[in-house]
Design a protein around this nucleic acid. Structure first.
Lengths: 334, 334
DNA sequence: CTGAAAGCGCTTACAG
DNA sequence: CTGAAAGCGCTTACAG
């Protein structure tokens, strides 16, 4: 499986490697047409494919960016990946996707790996567990942008949903529909994951604004496996909430499971709104009211910010947090 | 953003590049403990990360494999990717995922790109549109394995579901439940996509075996956007089918949409079984009976076959098609 | 208009 | 036990 190299092409075409290289890089300015033809033919005949690694070693750019996601199981995540890929592909960049599984150790491993592979930049859904590393990369001036979450300690460009607004929208909708109390359930918050923190604080503010009861037992932020028992507790409170806000798609699924196994009708027994416009929202019975993130725009911006940094055209504004507005998808679960 | 190189480390530690390289490759056999320590310290102090590209150029292995999927929107696909990543990661291989979008042009671009990036091998869900290219890679002895689909013209190792069995299981279940007729709907078959072809032929054989009516209007194989109107037609036949088999997750979603917008109760008005055990099968009302593919095992085998080829321990058997058995997940939509 | 030479950051026989 | 040298497959000033 000996690969054909630039030397083979040069020999075959009867020119030097330099000239072939000029050809490959489309610098035809001073190239005799005849030379060009010879090289073209040699490449075709030998089925030559340049070794991009060798090239990258020289030019110090791989035209590749890494994307490290916290948890690839969220639909939100896969949509963001698609959006990033879309814009990268237009400028002939490739992406390498890594799933950190919400584990800082894995995240560190992947950052190191991508850095070693000489990617030109990285988009990270940060676990938050590698602040020193993030800082170091920033010091090196290595292009990074954060997605979905941000690290207050570091001023790295971040693309985020207006999470407080998302909760506010949901609570407002509950109120407009006449519900008098609402709970919230999100996956665990121990690692200070931005969206979860902000969705809870947004929930609290909205609860206060609309004078709904603020009951500690209505606020659950636990790992996925614990959601069912926690819901159990919430629903055995002397006065259970009439509505419930699901912090993301996975929490929503757990709530729906719970409703089902307890024969709760939606929205009769419990009204539900979920953040993330899940794919089955329309299909579900009843169709699910959701808060939709503008995933495509968010992914697009993250990619553009990164590409700009890579090309050295980073903006100089001090503002590094980019918020996007959610949208209420009114259906019938509330 | 000058990166630190092996020369910097060598200088800092007061040894030669060769020695640092020995250290990096854990060849400590003849290394003085003192030398080792010095290098270790230098690496730590300089925060040195080896340039894997430079290394790969020399050792001619990138420890990365490409996976080109036909359409990343299928849940089946993402599950397979996870499985592949799982096994690769255990042997410290990385994967680059590309989405060909069922477009042979894109597929060709990606194959060329991955080849240029010197990946050690590729797993492809082949579009079928690049037979010459597949052949050439095979001739080069470049490690490839096909997933989900196979190309009869070429004896490349392929991992497949026993698709005929999948259809047979579904029809058998319909029959056992007392349904007297059944249709099938899959996404378009114009490109000779293996699973669609085989699921239809399996359907026909089973229909014959159980003496159900073979009605041309019961068999639809069209692109996703045409599924609704085609269902419309099928349901306006003088005698519409009592049950319907969805060829994959996307077809299933379309059928569910159709049932919903036409107020058809499941399974009362129409019984449904879908191939692919979709994530919302349990959640749906009624819970959906499905045919489950052993995705994890399939992905695992594909990765192992590829890794074996890369390591030159390919098996020599003539048999290159590896079939996996589906499993009926009996729920309540039939 | 084209080619020889140096160099990107590594590894690997080989010499000592 | 360690280092000098050659080389992986490219690119890029520079000379002619």
């Amino acid at each position: 499986m000996k690969r054909v190299t630039i030397s083979d092409v040069a020999k075959h075409a009867g020119v030097s490697k330099s000239t072939v290289s000029q050809f490959l890089n489309k610098r035809y300015d001073y190239m005799a047409l005849e030379t060009k033809d010879k090289i073209e033919k040699a490449i075709e005949e030998l089925k030559y494919h340049p070794n991009m690694m060798a090239r990258s070693l020289k030019v110090k750019s791989t035209k590749t960016v890494g994307v490290i996601v916290a948890n690839i199981l969220h639909e939100f995540t896969t949509q963001i990946i698609r959006a990033i890929e879309d814009v990268c592909q237009q400028v002939d960049f490739h992406i390498i996707v890594c799933n950190a599984d919400d584990d800082p150790m894995k995240e560190e491993k992947y950052i190191t790996m991508l850095y070693g592979k000489q990617v030109d930049g990285i988009i990270i859904f940060p676990t938050g567990g590698n602040i020193e590393l993030y800082k170091r990369l920033q010091d090196y001036n290595f292009p990074i942008v954060f997605m979905d979450r941000f690290i207050p300690e570091i001023g790295i460009d971040s693309v985020l949903l207006d999470n407080e607004m998302a909760s506010a929208m949901a609570i407002e909708e509950f109120v407009n529909r006449g519900y008098q109390s609402a709970g919230i359930i999100t996956t665990s918050v121990i690692k200070n994951v931005t969206p979860r923190l902000e969705r809870i604080s947004g929930y609290k503010k909205a609860i206060a604004k609309y004078d709904l009861p603020l009951v500690p037992g209505y606020i659950k932020s636990v790992k996925r496996a614990c959601i069912q028992p926690e819901l159990e507790k919430m629903f055995h409170l002397p006065k259970r909430p009439e509505a419930i806000l699901a912090g993301n798609d996975l929490s929503l699924i757990e709530i729906l499971k719970f409703a089902k196994s307890n024969n709760l009708s939606i929205p009769g027994d419990i009204a539900i709104i979920g953040v993330d416009d899940v794919s089955f929202a329309d299909l579900f019975n009843p169709p699910l009211t959701t808060i939709k993130q503008p995933t495509f725009e968010m992914g697009k911006m993250a990619a553009e910010l990164l590409l700009d940094k890579i090309n050295g055209v980073g903006k100089d504004s001090k503002e590094y947090i980019n918020r996007f507005q959610p949208e209420l998808m009114r259906r019938s679960s509330c």
